[in-house]
Computed example of a mutant assay.
Amino acid sequence: MAVLRSLLFTLLFYPGTLLYVLATLAVSPFGSRPVQAVVHGWAAFHHVLVRHVLGIRFEMQGSIPPGPHLIALKHQAMVETIEALQLADTPVVVMKRELTVIPLFGPVAVLYGVIGVDREAGASALREMMVQAKEAIAKGRPVVIFPEGTRVPPGEQPPLKPGFAGLYRALGLPVVPVALDSGRIWPRSLVKQPGVIHLLLGETIPPGLKRDEVERRVHAAINALEVSSAAGPQASPPQR
């Protein structure tokens, strides 16, 4: 059954994504708000397919505060890169630059407002990321970052990449850390398993901390579910 569900999800999601991409390009001459509306519609479309085709539910404990924040997510699967668009109000997502040059999808991502990072560019990439992130928060948009830098299998807790601390220091924003356990049922393979993905929001971390302190607190918070089988007995579905 999981194989059939996964196949149906693929057959619906990718052609549907193409339609949303074309719709985004069509409305792009009319400004950022129509673009954002279509992209958020795409994220909602993905959420419905994940819930009703794959049989995967999301349970979130805690909520994202309003206003500009640096949202630091654990990264175990592709699913949270899209769900992140529904965690906060029009967030800007830090992602690898390779995704921003994919035909059709890349231009749409840039139109919406993402920060593409060249992992091989070193300090120059960090400076460019700072500029784009400051532009985002000037518009009141939160910034989503995956501080471990890439997807990691369940159980792994790599150190945070230096870009996180640089962004934290430059932006002067509080950090909302988010732990999740998507990798248990959403592997890199085609077949996804039905079940529950838990999201656990940690205590908001204030700006201005020293690098070792903020990295220690964020690392512990985003890996909180690595030592827990669930987000807690009182977890409740996120508000959409």
Score class of each variant (00 low, 15 high):
8 L>F: 14
238 P>E: 02
14 Y>C: 14
138 A>C: 09
26 A>Q: 13
47 H>A: 13
16 G>W: 11
137 I>H: 06
203 E>S: 13
172 G>S: 06
48 V>I: 14
218 V>I: 08
141 R>M: 02
19 L>W: 09
114 V>I: 03
12 L>F: 06
207 P>F: 01
184 R>G: 06
185 I>P: 02
83 E>G: 06
90 T>R: 13
7 L>I: 13
104 L>T: 06
103 P>Q: 04
120 E>V: 15
234 Q>T: 14
135 E>A: 15
100 T>K: 08
91 P>N: 00
156 E>V: 07
79 V>Y: 06
239 Q>Y: 06
67 G>M: 04
90 T>F: 07
140 G>N: 02
182 S>G: 06
55 G>K: 14
80 E>L: 08
101 V>N: 05
157 Q>T: 14
192 K>L: 04
235 A>K: 13
37 A>M: 04
79 V>D: 01
99 L>P: 08
137 I>M: 10
173 L>V: 03
14 Y>T: 09
42 W>P: 03
69 H>G: 00
229 S>C: 10
73 L>S: 00
39 V>S: 14
155 G>V: 03
213 E>P: 10
229 S>L: 11
126 L>V: 15
197 I>Y: 05
16 G>R: 15
79 V>S: 14
239 Q>F: 08
148 E>D: 12
186 W>V: 07
55 G>I: 12
190 L>Q: 10
17 T>F: 14
29 P>E: 02
123 A>R: 14
153 P>R: 12
42 W>Q: 02
100 T>P: 09
97 R>Q: 11
213 E>L: 11
97 R>Y: 07
46 H>D: 13
208 G>V: 04
82 I>H: 10
167 L>S: 02
117 V>A: 08
7 L>C: 14
75 H>I: 15
196 V>R: 00
153 P>A: 12
128 E>A: 13
187 P>F: 01
150 T>Y: 07
207 P>V: 05
13 F>S: 13
44 A>W: 12
152 V>E: 10
10 T>C: 15
147 P>K: 04
48 V>C: 10
75 H>S: 13
215 E>H: 03
37 A>V: 05
49 L>W: 14
174 P>F: 09
76 Q>K: 01
70 L>M: 11
195 G>D: 05
15 P>L: 09
186 W>I: 08
154 P>N: 10
143 V>R: 00
113 G>Y: 03
222 I>T: 04
123 A>W: 11
171 L>I: 05
174 P>L: 06
67 G>F: 00
78 M>D: 11
111 L>W: 02
14 Y>E: 13
18 L>W: 09
205 I>F: 11
129 M>I: 09
201 L>G: 00
95 M>I: 09
96 K>N: 14
102 I>A: 06
23 A>C: 13
79 V>T: 11
89 D>T: 15
194 P>H: 07
109 A>S: 13
238 P>D: 01
27 V>K: 07
